[in-house]
Write a protein that binds this DNA or RNA. Structure first.
Length: 106
DNA sequence: TGGGTGACTAAGT
DNA sequence: CACTTAGCCACCC
């Protein structure tokens, strides 16, 4: 198995992973921002790349535009945010990242 | 070539 | 603020 296990072209996958690895601690980027950095709007494709190849990169620094971490990984992401002092906001439904402070622009 | 998929986004309720 | 609907993009079979 490899990065192409899902079928996504390594070119696109590598570019996405490149941007994700460039995100400094305590900062985050949205799927749309990463796609925009690549000159594309394929936010969904970025999510696909992370879903299958995000295991080798700081995936918790990549979140939705709403400030919510990827579905099913909210708990694991929370642990990382605590360790990096990422700005968080408490909500009735749980928590979310304070994009206003944590959002990083390359 | 066409249809289906998803760690998304924006707008409306 | 949270949920729902429709639109998007790259990629697979």
């Amino acid at each position: 198995m490899s990065a192409s296990a899902v079928g996504l072209n390594d070119s696109f996958v590598e570019r996405v992973l490149e941007v994700v690895e460039a995100i400094p601690p305590a900062h985050v980027m949205t799927y749309g921002d990463i796609a925009a950095t690549l000159g594309s709007r394929a936010a969904r494709v970025v999510g696909q790349v992370m879903a299958y190849n995000g295991a080798d990169v700081p995936w918790w620094r990549v979140i939705r535009a709403s400030g919510h971490p990827p579905s099913g990984h909210e708990q694991a992401a929370f642990e990382h945010y605590m360790a990096e002092s990422t700005p968080l906001l408490k909500t009735d439904a749980g928590y979310r990242v304070n994009l206003r402070l944590a959002r990083w622009r390359p």
